[in-house]
Design a binder for these strands. Structure first.
Lengths: 241, 241
DNA sequence: CGATGATTCAAACAAACGTTTGAATGTTTT
DNA sequence: AAAACATTCAAACGTTTGTTTGAATCATCG
């Protein structure tokens, strides 16, 4: 009996709760967090204004709930995919393409699922990354730290010749290209103004982004001796010849 | 005499005007656009609240003024650098490193100039890129479109074997890595949690980012004929001319 | 000087913000 | 049915928001 009761209570409260989550997600994506009012959310969801504080406690906690609902499964899937690849490899290091795919494919699956946020949801994440609000930063780092640690370790095994510091940098660049691409900001449309890019084919997207990232990760080490040993060096800037 | 009068009037109004710009820039960087109130700006600048509307018209126009003050000279310098390189090359195509440097160095110069915004200003730009507000998007695309078009043409001459569509994509990835790096978001600190990265040495930064981007731009074309995932091992040479 | 225009200032504007309250409703348990 | 709990609701809370107003202050000009 108690089981059934709990399920009923849960499913009932979930109705209002998820209506709020859906409306909040859509509006946060469209206008951003700070620019979206609670009244827009509640009227958009067809629920009472106070329902937000009853179910989530505050606007900040609502945003965290919106993010976790999508990010938690996605990162879990990333780790599961990476784990499966490494099990299949039986100790042998994976290829860069495989590891990148483990990061990329779950994100694409999320972006493709129009019922669950659609591709615009990733724009919300991209925006959250750039948000200076402390509670957002704390939330994201706590959410992403374990996953990134695992992937960094995997890349380290695949690229053993790369110093750890260099790998950190290239992972950073990789995350930049990845996030920008997934977030699909205006810069894309801006560049493609002269030569339009179709963003609807995800398979092709990975085929294009993959080689770019792999080549970057496997790029030869730069000669840093000139700078580290002798900071007085007169030559600056990049080689151009 | 009218000349002198104008100059006096200008320099006088510039006092209040620039005090507002400085305070707004600092606060927009720290808390974001929406989260920053006009009263924080005016009290921080030591001016009256109404001065913002008197000198700029609205909060939105203030943000545009904050952005143009730094972005306009930076993009102009980028184009000048690119133009100079192409003049020196006398018709020969530039190297990827040179073109990337023309994009990167003016941004680094801006980031290094603590008197003029410091490196945190680039975080404001990165945040502006992800902002869904229409007036910000319109402003940025209008501000950046010409510069990007020039650089895209330069890359096209350097990488003539790349189809235009592929070049658009890789430029997009490049902008992603570049913006993320310059913006210095939390993902950097997140990745570097296990292995700290020092962000204070810009020269080293370019030396690391450069090879990553060059390798990505010069990566071999992906085989788009078949879309079945196939893990390819073996060599991926990123060396090219 | 008196006049003119530019700038500053304190004060108030209506609107929207996130949050709280307390009663009304619904639902489950005793 | 009655007590206990969970959820919804309309209304108001006190602040804060961006913006406007009209007088005061300042500098320049005829």
């Amino acid at each position: 009996m108690s089981m059934l009761q709990l399920r009923l209570v849960d499913s009932k409260s979930s109705v209002t709760k998820e209506k709020i989550l859906d409306a909040a997600e859509a509006l946060f994506m469209e206008h951003g967090f700070e620019a979206t009012g609670l009244r827009q959310i509640t009227t958009g969801a067809g629920v009472n204004l106070a329902a937000v504080h009853y179910h989530f406690g505050s606007k900040e906690e609502l945003l965290q709930a919106v993010l976790t609902r999508r990010l938690d499964p996605m990162n879990q899937e990333r780790l599961a995919l990476l784990d499966q690849l490494e099990n299949d490899a039986r100790g042998k290091p994976l290829t860069c393409e495989a590891i990148i795919g483990a990061m990329f494919i779950p994100a694409l699956k999320l972006a493709r699922d129009k019922a669950r946020g659609g591709k615009n949801f990733l724009r919300l994440i991209g925006r959250a990354y750039a948000d200076p609000a402390p509670f957002i930063r704390q939330f994201l780092s706590h959410q992403y730290a374990p996953m990134i640690a695992f992937f960094k370790a995997a890349f380290g095994r695949t690229l053993p010749h790369l110093p750890a510091k260099e790998l950190s940098w290239r992972l950073h660049f990789l995350m930049g290209a990845l996030s920008y691409t997934l977030a699909g900001t205006d810069v894309l449309k801006l560049i493609s103004a002269l030569n339009p890019i179709a963003t609807d084919n995800d398979e092709l997207l990975l085929r294009r982004l993959g080689p770019f990232l792999v080549a970057g990760l496997q790029a030869p080490l730069a000669d840093l001796s000139e700078l580290t040993a002798r900071p007085k060096s007169g030559r600056r800037g990049v080689r151009s010849a």
